[in-house]
Every structure is written in C-alpha cells, then in structure tokens.
Amino acid sequence: MTYINAKEILKESIPVLTICVTISVFSGLFLNKNTELLKFLPGLLIIMPSFIAVNGNISSVLTSRLSSALHMGLIKPNFRRTKILLRNIYSMLIVSMVSFPVLGFVAAAANSLFGASKAAFVIFPLITFTAGMITVLLLIFASILFSYVTYRKGLDPDTVVIPLLTTTGDLVGIVVLLVVTGMMI
C-alpha cells in the first residue's frame, strides 16, 4: 500500500517542502527589511497572519475546486471562459470583498483595546481591502494557470499546486501588504 510507504511519502514531500522553505525565506527577508514600517504601525503585525491566512484559504479552496472539476472533466485545461470557471472566480472575488474589510475592522477593534486611535477603523479596512484584492487577483490568476499546466502534464494540482501556491501567496501577500501600507501612510 503506497499510502503508508514512508519512503514514498518522504520522496514526494521533501522536494516540495524544500522549494517552500526557499520561497518563505524571501518573505522573511522582506519582513526583516521593513522593521521600521512595522515599528511605526504595530497593528500591521496583528493583521499579517490573518491576512496571509485569508489569501492562503482562498487560493487553496479555488485550486482544490478547480482540481476536482478538472478530474471530473467538468472543465477542460484550456482558457475558455466556461460557466463553471467563471462561477468559481466570481465566488472567490465575493468572498474576498467581504472578508478583507471585515478582517481590517475586527483588527482595528482588537487594536483599540490596546489604545490605538479611532483612525484605525478607517485605515485598517482600507489597507486590508486594497492589499487583499490585489493579492487575490494575482493568486486567482496563478491558481488557474498552475492548475491547468500541472493537470496537462499529468500531475495532480491538489498535491503540487496547493503547497507551492500558499507559500508564494505568503510572499506576495506580505510584499503587497507592506507596499500598500507604505503608500497609504
């Protein structure tokens, strides 16, 4: 049984994890280079894990759904705008449009407990919404492209695309969040 073959599992996981480690170090580097901005707006650190988690969840849900649809033959790996593909894109856009401002608002509320200013209730949702929509658009595009390419090559997008896309999403998310914040302040 392959599923409890330890060697097989390690052989499949180690290369993917190594790529993920490499990408994530660059996210960390970007964080390390922007300590001044983070010191200036400490609330940004409280938002960050939630922000990248929302990105990660949206891109994994989409990739997982695309993967199932590809396996079931409901969509073909060509870039034709079929109804099912569009529904998946629209639904993820709606989810993003709601969850990012809500996240910013709740983060502002959490921060106000520690004495942050009332301005946070406007600035935080604005930052999370702008940065979130930019990131999600990039990730939706990447999810479709990589799912189609891996599926065409005979690989399973579930196992290959999801871990790589969530790690890349962290990098893109952190960079966009810091750049958008830097521009707004």
Partner: peptide, 9 residues
C-alpha cells in the same frame, strides 16, 4: 523575523 513566514508556512 526571516524565520517567521517559513515556520508558519
């Protein structure tokens, strides 16, 4: 800070 995204990811 360089370790953090990697640890969480």
């Amino acid at each position: 800070l360089i370790l953090i995204p990697g640890m969480l990811g």
